[in-house]
Amino acid sequence: MRRRFITGLSSAAVALAATAAMAAPANAAPADKLQVMSSWSQTSASSQQAFLNARAHQGDWSAYGFDWSTDKCSSSPDNPFGFPFENSCIRHDFNYRNYKAVGKFDANKARIDSAFYEDLKRVCNGYSGAQKTACSGLAWTYYQAVSKLGVAPADTGAQVDQAA
């Protein structure tokens, strides 16, 4: 009898805990999520630096539910001919993924792509002569690729379906 009572009491406690967990409100991202995203997607060097600092301290931003995943420069070289484009691609991926996740991608794509180009040009400004010319040409090519062909990763299938 005592064993049945304890088993029944344990089952009731588990059911009560499960009900309470389902009834608890989901943790929503802070109200300033779009403002933070906007501050990290501007064309300025300070915006890029703020993003890179946040990326280095991702745990500080966990309440926002950001998607920090990246494939860097996708199928293009991350550091073509030794020019370090990787961080520019990482920030670009972050912005594409996160604006898409909040349903604001189309309204922000042009600025995100422009910020990417400015990031690449800042890389090229560290060179001179023929190296700067080569870097600038690659930066323009990378920018044109994302500007004309860039889609959020989740849209890749949709783009193929629409093209068919």
Score class of each variant (00 low, 15 high):
G126P: 04
F81Q: 13
T70S: 15
P80A: 07
P77C: 03
Q131S: 14
F105D: 02
K132Y: 02
S128M: 02
S114W: 03
F81N: 12
S128T: 14
P80I: 02
A115L: 05
Q131D: 15
S114E: 15
T70L: 10
K100V: 01
F81S: 12
S75A: 12
W61E: 12
S62A: 15
K104L: 13
G129M: 08
V102I: 15
N79Y: 00
K109V: 07
R122T: 07
F66R: 14
N125C: 01
W68K: 10
R122A: 13
A63W: 02
P80G: 04
F105Y: 15
H92W: 05
R111E: 15
K109R: 15
Q131K: 13
V123W: 02
S88T: 03
R97P: 02
D71F: 03
K72V: 07
E118C: 03
Y64S: 07
F85W: 01
Q131T: 03
N79F: 00
S74P: 00
D119H: 00
K121Q: 15
G126C: 06
F83G: 05
F83H: 06
N95D: 14
P84Q: 11
G129Q: 06
D113Y: 04
F94M: 09
A115M: 03
T70E: 06
T70N: 06
D67V: 11
D71I: 02
S69K: 14
A115I: 02
Q131M: 05
P77M: 04
P84L: 04
Y64L: 09
D106C: 00
T70H: 09
N79P: 01
F105A: 12
R111F: 00
G126V: 07
D113Q: 04
F83M: 08
F66V: 10
A130M: 07
A101K: 14
W68Q: 10
S128V: 08
P84N: 15
S75L: 13
A101Y: 03
Y117Q: 11
D67W: 04
D60L: 11
A107V: 11
K132N: 13
W68S: 09
Y96S: 04
N98A: 12
F85P: 06
F105M: 14
R91Q: 13
P84D: 13
D93H: 06
D78P: 02
N87W: 01
A110C: 01
D78Q: 09
V102M: 12
C89R: 06
A110V: 13
W61S: 11
T70F: 09
V102L: 10
N98T: 10
H92E: 12
F66P: 01
C73V: 04
A107I: 12
S75T: 13
F105R: 06
D67A: 14
N98Y: 11
K72I: 07
D93K: 09
D93S: 04
E118L: 06
I90S: 03
S76F: 13
D119M: 03
